[in-house]
Structures are given as structure tokens and as C-alpha cells.
Design a binder for these strands. Sequence first.
DNA 1: TATTGTTATACTCTATAACTATA
DNA 2: TATAGTTATAGAGTATAACAATA
Lengths: 150, 150
Amino acid sequence: METPAPEIAALDRLMELTVLLGEDMTTSLAALGLTTSRTHLLWVLHHGGPSTQRALADALSVSARNVTGLVDGLEATGFVTREPHPGDRRATLVTLTPRAVEVVAQMVQGQQELASQLCGGLGPGVLEGLVAGLDAVLERLRPLVAGAGS
Amino acid sequence: METPAPEIAALDRLMELTVLLGEDMTTSLAALGLTTSRTHLLWVLHHGGPSTQRALADALSVSARNVTGLVDGLEATGFVTREPHPGDRRATLVTLTPRAVEVVAQMVQGQQELASQLCGGLGPGVLEGLVAGLDAVLERLRPLVAGAGS
DNA sequence: TATTGTTATACTCTATAACTATA
DNA sequence: TATAGTTATAGAGTATAACAATA
């Protein structure tokens, strides 16, 4: 208890990093008029193409009602449109606007810039050590979280 | 652009870790009837002792109104009490209940267990490499976030 | 009968502005 | 006049339940 175990030191850093990365992301997105939840939805559309709200709810692990709200907000701010689904008149296809496509491209570029700001030119072996350590931790963390999700 | 830069790989892992750690924390706290915001407030009280709501608002970087709501919730669920401030009748002293003290102790223990689950017995040099890498990244990340806060 | 998306309702976190009581 | 905390109002994310339209 007196000697601060190195595992504790590592977890403390992981926690601080979690907080700081989250803040950085939140403020960056706010500058674009987005929130993390809405951006997550945009991201799913970017990768999966136009989707029904049902598919989005499943992809985001969120209620259908919640998707209605997120799409309402994104529609009102010009990031997505609701199109009729050809073949199922119950469903709507949520689609990225050209502006959203642009913004997503900017975000991808921003991620790359952040990656080099944070991890660029780190001294021999440091980046490798970081990745190896993160992989080891992730391997143990994933099952812990996955178990809670079911 | 074709070769996935190792910096990108590192940031991807940091992001995944951020998400998973956040989920783990949220579900653990939910099991105790707490949210991250309320727990943050509890944490401040644990470290600083009974505090006015004004002090809590400053410590949490949150509006006074928000603290009223958080304290309302924690009071209703038996984690804190509002006591009169001796010497300033405008102010209230928010104080942890015995039960909250217990729960905080459990959380500290839970953190230690998580630390050994995630980082215990990692193989020679891996933990050291992780901490060194995290320190390097944190040193670059802190100024980025601090700048936005002012 | 099952599915898609909505309205209705509710809780949490967050903010600003106006107001009360006290300093 | 300034400060502590509240009420009033508002927006965002989240949930369940009831309901309409369609499959």
C-alpha cells in the first residue's frame, strides 16, 4: 500500500488519457457544430452508406427513439437527409449531405494530424513500446467490457 | 498514405481504450446507482472534505446550477447531505454520508483490482514500455487540451 | 403478427438568466 | 455591491411504452 504499484501508475495514466482525449474530441467536434453521439452516427453512415434508422440503432447500440432524435438534430443542422426507402415504405434511408462528407474528410485529416502531434518522432522504441503495451491491455480489457454488454 | 503510419495505429488503440474504459466505468458505477458526473463530485468531497457548492462548481468546472442538480440527485439517493455552513448562512456544506464513504472505499479497491487485471504480470519490459509511451503522449496532449479550457 | 419510425413521458447532464437571501 | 444557491427555461442524450403505417 505504501509502494505505489506500477500497475496503478499505468492505470492512472490511462485514465488521465481517457479524460483528456475525450475533452479534446468534444471541443473539436463542438467547433464543427457536432456532438460525439451525432458524430458517431455520421461515422456509421460514412462507413456503411445510407442506412435505415433501425440499422443505425443497432450499429450504435441505442434505442430507435434515440436515433429519431439524433437524426432530427443532424437533419436540422444540415448533415443528413431522410430519403424514402425504395422497397419498404415504412423505412427511411438516412444519407450524408455533401457538407457532411466534407466534414468527415476533415475529421479524418484531423485524426492524422493529432496522431503525429501525439506520437510523431517519439524516440527509438518508445512508440513500439506504447503500442505493445496498449495491445496487451486491450486484449484483457475487451472481454471485460464485452461481457457487460450482453 | 498507403502504409498505415504507426502513429495512426497508436492513436487508434488509444481511442479504443478510451471508449472501453469509459464503458467499463459507466457500467460499474451504474451498478452502484451512480453516474460519472455524480461520482466525480463524490470524489472531490472524498479528497477535499465537506465543501460548499460554489467550491464544487469550481472544482468540477461546471455551473452552479449544475451542482444544485448533482447534489439534489446525490442527496435523494443517500450519498450526501446538505449541512448549514457555520459562519456563512448563504452557503451549504455538502458532506459524504457514511454509506458514500464506504462506496468510495469500494471504488478505490475496484480500481486496484482493475489495475492488476489489466496490467498485472505483463512480461518483462511491457509495462515499463507502456508507461513510458503514455507519459510521452500525455506530455504532448496536456497542453493541447489546457489551451482550449481558458 | 412483426417491424419501422413516431409521439408521449421521464431522467440525467449541461448552460444562461433572473431572483432571494445573505455578506 | 458582491456572493451562494435557487427557480425558470432550454437543449442534448438516453430510456421505455404506446401507437400508426406498412410488411
